[in-house]
Design a protein around this nucleic acid. Structure first.
Length: 402
RNA sequence: GGGGAGAUACCAAAGCGGCCAACUGGGCCAGACUGUAAAUCUGGUGGCUUAUGCCUUCGGCGGUUCGAAUCCGCCUCUCCCCA
């Protein structure tokens, strides 16, 4: 079924994987599938409560893409039922229950974003409410009885939360079981996840064995940290999202730390090893720019990727103004005595509040027509033509009176 | 079921009657230096049409007081110990 030679296929599975349980079973499993002329079913779960994908997800998706291209069957599980529990992977807040409509909407968003990486026409998608909604309480108890409390407490996040005296809801123990049950229901051969998912993936193995299925192989891939070094997450504001513009993607990549370059290249691009070594031996800025261009190009096309790089160089390396400064017409009447700069900054959206604008002005971060304005109470007379405003390094606007 | 401790800004954590828009650290924003990297240094990190001024904030609701994040009552939530 696979389009690759057996050794190549094995290597493809192994590449980049942190854990591969049980690795020694992989070759046999692949050979069997090959003999039966069927693809392996490769499972990946997603959480529908935050449908916007970022490059952290891309690590997994890129792997799925490669496996898909090698002829395997990708199965995406939308965890709408599990979302009601909330993955106990660190945070202790329960998630609000999503309405059916929300789930449907998020599902559409998700699959269309995943479609930027995967061929969705060849991808199977299931919501796990498909089987969990049909369960009776008796079934739930039966499922719950398949794991022990001690086993659950092995999970490092539970352990940490216990140690930190944080509350743990009993229902949270069900999360790994639910995720594992998904594997049973779709008869997964392989499940992919981040390194933080290892426990959940292993529970799937256990459950499959108890259900007399061949236990899935569990593959974990490294988690990519966000721009600030913490786990990448939209709620931390440190993510590069699939929906970010090419310009944003490039800019965000340029602010990455040097020492994550190799990992990002290996996990997110197809740059060959030899070329990568050469790149990393050179100036880090060059390597970073290449990474930014690769990423922006992947999601937005070659032209957009190149344009993003050129625009960035122009603005930050050559200190020229960006080419796409928005022109804003200030619609309200312009006071004769002049408009307070802080208020103007807020009104045109360069700052969130006038207090924030004042702080920025005091900190020397605001330029009017190219000159720093340090007076908090500065007033701006009604301009004859256009004013050029800059707030911080990257926010620009041209303003004219309405 | 019994006993004890606690809930403070994005996170952690001080404050325990006025000097509190609230110490400190992390994060974040801005400035200097740079490669929009790291490290380092500096300032900032509730809001307000213009401020040694006003308004809102310390789990919730009430109360005491000239004055409460700080004291009292009830409520909600959490943790620990014992059973």
């Amino acid at each position: 079924m696979s389009t690759l030679s057996a050794p190549d296929e094995l290597a493809l599975f192994r590449r980049g994987a942190v854990d591969l349980v049980e690795e020694r079973d992989l070759a046999a499993r692949l050979a069997k599938a090959r003999a039966e002329r069927r693809p392996l079913r490769v499972k990946f779960g997603m959480d529908p409560s935050s449908p916007d994908l970022h490059v952290g997800h891309a690590v997994q998706l890129m792997k799925l893409r490669a496996l898909q291209q090698a002829g395997h069957q990708i199965v995406l599980i939308v965890g709408d039922a599990t979302a009601m529990v909330g993955d106990p992977s660190g945070r202790n807040k329960l998630r609000p229950q999503l309405s059916r409509a929300d789930v449907e909407a998020n599902l559409v968003t998700y699959t269309s974003q995943a479609g930027k990486v995967l061929d969705m026409t060849r991808t199977e998608v299931h919501k796990n409410s498909e089987w969990f909604d049909r369960m009776r309480f008796e079934d739930v108890l039966k499922l719950a009885s398949k794991a022990t409390v001690a086993r659950m407490l092995e999970r490092d996040t539970f352990e940490k939360r216990m140690a930190a005296s944080e509350p743990i809801g009993v229902h949270e123990f069900l999360y790994p079981l639910m995720q594992g049950w998904d594997s049973v229901m779709i008869r997964a051969d392989v499940e992919l996840g981040g390194t933080d998912q290892l426990f959940n993936l292993l529970v799937g193995r256990d459950l499959q064995e108890k259900e007399a299925q061949p236990p899935q192989l569990c593959m974990t891939l490294p988690l990519i940290n966000g721009l600030d070094g913490r786990k990448m997450s939209k709620s931390y504001g440190n993510a590069i999202a699939f929906t970010d513009s090419a310009v944003d993607m490039f800019g965000k990549v340029m602010s990455l730390s040097d020492d994550v370059m190799r990992a990002w290249f290996e996990l997110l691009t197809a740059v060959p090893a030899a070329e990568l070594d050469a790149l990393l031996a050179g100036h880090p800025r060059e390597a970073k720019a290449r990474l930014g261009e690769e990423l922006a190009s992947f999601f937005h096309g070659r032209d957009a990727g190149r344009a993003a790089r050129e625009g960035f160089d122009r603005q930050f390396r050559d200190k020229e103004l960006p080419t796409d400064i928005p022109s804003i017409v200030y619609g309200k009447p312009w006071p004769v005595e002049g408009l307070a700069l802080a208020v103007l900054l807020r009104e045109i959206g360069l700052c969130a509040s006038s207090s924030e604008a004042r702080r920025l002005i005091e900190g020397g971060g605001v330029k009017l027509d190219g000159a720093v304005v340090a007076d908090v109470n500065a007033r701006v007379p009604s301009p004859a033509g256009e004013l050029l405003l800059q707030a911080g390094k990257r926010k620009f606007a041209r303003v004219r009176a309405g």
